[in-house]
Design a protein around this nucleic acid. Structure first.
Lengths: 189, 189
DNA sequence: ACAGGCATGTAAATAGTTACATGATTCG
DNA sequence: CGAATCATGTAACTATTTACATGCCTGT
């Protein structure tokens, strides 16, 4: 059998506890794992079909009124596949942070514009923090402790990051205000 | 003009200070921005061609011995484009962390196997931290302070994350050792 | 009646990685 | 001489997003 795409495991994990529809999976992902693993309809529906063909999930008609709806349940094979994956040491770690990239190249910008980058980054992290905070009550209700643990990691991370932005902004501001130490290129002796 | 791909800006930023070859750009990216913005040959060479056609960079033959080599220099238009981009508020923030995903689904695993996930995550962060540390002297030599600032952010981040993993592992271990509080599903009255 | 949410799906585009082909130079 | 590194480039593949099409149901 072909090896599964990373998104396949998100789906297997999401249908592990109870059968769910593609739509439900998407909305749960958007409210939980999206901060460290996103998935779109364009991935979810085709992947459900593939998983179903591979016998790792089974779909069942579960219409709401006259609205057609298919919920997918994990099979024994799917369960096995999920657990085998969970046992593999995690490898993928990727980050794409446009703010850090801009900061990295900030020398190309007039100094007084640099703090704005950090301010914008900080605001993004604070906004993310609030979204996570809003989810906390939901996660607390469940008897599964791990989503809550991960969520709190997210809270701590966004707080650390926002704080770092603040400190770096202050540092740059302080450096700009103080006597300019030996500067770029020219020997200003 | 078509809007540029995100990777295009990495390239513009990389050739901003001095002309560089595609090969050099790749190796600098691999040693610096890759932690928050990676790029492969498959992106860099075609993108250099596009940027060149758009007049944002100009290529010049600069062979090393008999080995053909093209270095690209940024043009006034390219400079303008880069600065305009730097002034836009950053938007992209993405993370894909297989470890957190596994932790999120860890309820599907026997409890005693969960700390292993955190241990593996921690080791990855510590390894990344060491790589960053090895780069610090290089960054310190330059007169541009921003790459160093970003690098130190990376150091702090990896340290925070490694520490979080350690604390969470301890917490899980402690919870497992202590009297098991009301547990999953069954009412064990 | 209409907005908004539920629900499934696909087409097209964009992004990005991996692997390979090719060939020169340098260093041990 | 052979390995590593410098150097450019492409083809094939995988991943992922965006936007759209379709249609039902619920609440106002």
């Amino acid at each position: 059998m072909e090896s599964l795409s990373p998104t396949a495991y998100v789906i297997l994990g999401m249908v592990h506890k109870e059968p769910r529809s593609g739509y439900e999976i998407k909305s749960i992902v958007d409210n939980t794992t999206r901060f460290f693993w996103a998935a779109s309809y364009g991935q979810i529906y085709p992947e459900l079909k593939r998983l179903s063909e591979a016998g790792l999930v089974v779909g069942a008609d579960a219409p709401t009124g006259g609205r057609r709806r298919t919920v997918y349940e994990i099979t024994a094979d799917g369960e096995e596949e999920l657990v085998a994956w969970l046992r593999q040491p995690p490898v993928t770690f990727e980050m794409r942070e446009e703010g850090l990239l801009k900061l990295f190249f900030a020398d190309a910008l007039p100094r007084e514009e640099v703090p704005g980058i950090l301010r914008a980054m900080r605001e993004h992290r604070l906004a993310a923090n609030e979204k996570l905070r809003a989810m906390e009550p939901m996660a607390q209700e469940k008897d599964d402790p791990f989503p809550l643990l991960v969520l709190r990691g997210g809270l701590e991370f966004t707080e650390w990051f926002a704080d770092w932005c603040e400190r770096m902004e202050a540092q740059i501001l302080a450096a700009a205000a103080k006597p300019p130490p030996p500067r770029k290129g020219a020997a200003d002796v």
